[in-house]
Design a binder for these strands. Structure first.
Lengths: 143, 143
DNA sequence: CTGCATCCGCAATGATACTG
DNA sequence: CAGTATCATTGCGGATGCAG
């Protein structure tokens, strides 16, 4: 951990202490864009964002919907997303408390790119699977 | 590891033994699309694909260009990408051997969605950073 | 109900050394 | 140059328990 870092547990720091050249090079290790890319490239972030783009949801609703996520990771991811301003969290002071998550305008912007990706994934899944099988066969025979 | 799984090291299996319902639910743990999504959502895959979309590259050229990647991860990711049919690998039998990586048509399809995402990331980075700062401040005072 | 804190195993990653 | 093999470490992610 360096100076500018914060303590979000699930947040992998890229060692970016006061980067001086913010623009242009996504391939530089300390580029802030890459940090963002890492967040986007998170296993759960994508799924959450997709869900929230459709409708606001409660914590447990999300958890039920996204199979395989633990509350820890869900909570963690949600907090990261909130911190990035992609998701908003609103608390109604009922008893017990009611927490609702929603996508922000900023998040909705990202959602556009994301959905294109998902769509691609669903479309090309067949081809990819075929490629994998071919590759595996070749490996098995070649050694 | 289950039956259908293979031994690519960097490949996190989602326990998908002969999934029966391939379509529709990206949120199901065993959905093949999600496997693909995980691949896409890889830290290095994105970067590599972006680079190769611009031009064919050699191994070390990639390594030099992508700061912070270890040969191990680069090699690993490259192999995954090749297995998925997104990247092609060609070997010229020179001495020493010359290996060139290129993006495939399939990979280029994905590249479209990807570049939209990168573009978004670069555009909205400022806003996200601002949101982060605001969040952190709020935490610091309220926390 | 909605979380946060803690412990902990294991997979993923990185550093280093070695091969062709 | 283009990797593979080995070893050390990290921190993800799951399970559990507790709090508001």
């Amino acid at each position: 951990m360096q100076e500018g870092t914060i303590s979000i547990p699930g947040h992998r720091e890229v060692t970016a202490p006061a980067q001086s050249r913010p623009r242009g090079d996504v391939y530089a290790a300390n580029c802030p864009t890459r940090q963002l890319l890492d967040r986007i490239a998170d296993k759960w972030s994508t799924l959450i964002l997709m869900l929230l783009a459709a409708e606001d949801m409660r914590f447990n609703a999300l958890k039920r919907r996204i199979q395989g996520v633990s509350q820890k990771m869900l909570s963690q991811t949600l907090r990261s997303l909130e911190r990035d301003g992609l998701v908003s969290r609103s608390v109604e002071p009922t008893v017990p408390v009611t927490v609702t998550y929603a996508i922000t305008p900023l998040g909705r912007g990202l959602f556009g790119s994301l959905s294109a990706m998902i769509e691609w994934a669903e479309t090309c899944m067949i081809e990819v699977t075929a490629a994998q099988r071919a590759y595996d066969l070749k490996q098995a025979s070649a050694g």
